[in-house]
């Protein structure tokens, strides 16, 4: 009996995979391709807009310390507002334009990005700042050429979490008629009681998140050439521990 159910379960699984495959092959050009592209565009624009807001906020929070705690409370409260409510509230103003999805998603990234920008800038060692000042760097040049590059790994760590979170959250916007792959899941899967589009939507969404993550890792390696050989330099247990603690510190606020 056990063998029989195993065999029939295996047959079910094969049939399900075949169904997903057939549906994918038949719908690749429409709607899968355009929805995937829309999903990527919505997430990319949201994270970019979030970064553009988070950078000046983070700079202000790192420079004027008393500003930071209320700022942090603000972005955390924003983070707790259900995305569904924000989408609905924007609908009367922005209609079915992409901004209805982008604005809330960008606001959510702030809770992840702002603390990372501030932490990244705060961990620039004082002697490095002083050396830059002694070499005649003005405040702006020091920021752009010394402080931001040193803060970059921590900022990118935040961007990685933010991009994965955003890509997974875009789908919720399908409840207001936007949302890229979410629409595959909702209109093609849920409303027709058909699991294949749901599975395709989930797999593509996860794949997109991993692709974005890989691109950000590559970007960081390219932008911080001085850090490439460093990991192999941490040979003693103690050094490895310190290195790991530094990475964990940069990660924990966001994970």
């Amino acid at each position: 009996m056990g063998e029989g159910t195993t065999a029939s379960r295996a047959a079910d699984a094969v049939a399900a995979v075949a169904e997903v495959w057939d549906w994918t092959a038949a719908n690749l050009d429409d709607p899968i391709g355009p929805k995937l592209l829309e999903h990527a565009q919505l997430s990319f624009t949201s994270v970019l807009l979030g970064l553009l807001i988070a950078l000046p906020l983070g700079l202000a929070g790192a420079r004027w310390r008393p500003l930071y705690p209320p700022m942090l409370t603000g972005v955390n409260v924003l983070y707790a507002v259900p995305s569904l409510a924000l989408f609905f509230l924007l609908l009367p103003y922005t209609g079915f334009s992409p901004w209805t999805a982008i604005i809330p998603l960008a606001l959510y990234t702030l809770a992840i990005l702002v603390p990372n920008v501030v932490d990244g800038l705060n961990q620039v060692p004082d002697h490095v700042r002083q050396a830059a000042a002694a070499m005649g760097f003005g405040p702006l040049r020091r920021l752009l050429q010394v402080e931001l590059p040193i803060a970059l790994p921590v900022i990118v760590a935040g961007l990685r979490v933010a991009s994965v979170a955003t890509i997974s959250m875009v789908s919720v916007a399908s409840l207001v008629g936007l949302g890229g792959l979410g629409q595959l899941i909702l209109t093609h899967g849920f409303k027709r009681n058909f699991p294949a589009p749901v599975i395709v939507g989930i797999i593509l969404s996860v794949a997109l998140a991993f692709l974005a993550d890989a691109v950000l890792v590559a970007l960081q390696r390219w932008l911080t050439p001085w850090a490439r050989g460093r990991e192999s330099g941490a040979t003693t247990t103690r050094n490895r521990h310190i290195a790991r603690a530094a990475v964990a510190r940069s990660r924990k606020a966001t994970t």
Binding site: S168, G179, G201, I202, S205
Partner: peptide
């Protein structure tokens, strides 16, 4: 973390 909530 990357799983879309709506999909699940």
């Amino acid at each position: 973390r990357a799983l879309p909530t709506i999909g699940v």
